[in-house]
Simulated assay, not measured.
Amino acid sequence: MMRFNANRKDFEPYGFTCVRWEASIIKRPDRHNEIELNFLETGQVTYLLFGQTVMVPAGRLAVFWAGIPHNTIHFEGLTEYFVSTIPLVWFLQWRLPEHFTHLIMHGHLIMEPDPSRAAADATLFRNWLEDVATPSEERRHITLLEIEARLRRLALNVPAPDTASPPSRHPTPAVLSESHLSRAEQMAAYIAQHYTEPLTLEHISRAAGLHPNYTVGVFRRVFGTTPLEYVIQHRLSHAQRLLATTDELILDVALNSGFGSLSRFNQAFRRAFGCTPREYRQRHRAT
Rank of each mutant, 00 (worst) to 15 (best):
N256R: 05
L210I: 04
L199D: 11
N213D: 14
I191E: 03
H234A: 14
L236V: 09
T246P: 02
A188K: 08
L242C: 01
V175E: 06
L201D: 10
T172K: 00
T215V: 03
L228G: 04
F223C: 00
L242D: 00
F219S: 03
G224S: 12
G224Q: 13
S177E: 13
Y195R: 09
D252W: 12
A184T: 05
H238F: 09
T196S: 01
I204C: 15
E248L: 15
V216L: 14
V218D: 08
H194W: 08
H211C: 00
A208T: 12
L236K: 01
R206P: 03
H238Q: 08
I232T: 15
H211M: 00
T245M: 10
E185F: 13
T215C: 05
L176T: 13
L199T: 15
A174I: 03
T200P: 02
T196I: 04
Y214I: 09
Y195H: 11
T215M: 05
V218G: 04
H180I: 11
T215H: 03
A189L: 10
E229W: 00
L249N: 02
P227D: 02
L201E: 14
L236N: 05
Y230C: 05
E178F: 06
S182H: 15
F223Q: 00
A244N: 00
S177C: 13
G217C: 00
Q240T: 13
P198T: 15
D252S: 11
A208P: 11
T226R: 08
E185G: 02
P227A: 04
F219P: 04
V231E: 11
L249A: 07
H180S: 14
L242T: 00
H234G: 13
Y214N: 12
L251H: 09
L181V: 08
P173R: 08
E178W: 04
T245C: 09
L249Y: 09
D247F: 09
I250T: 15
L236Q: 05
T172R: 00
Q186Y: 04
A189R: 10
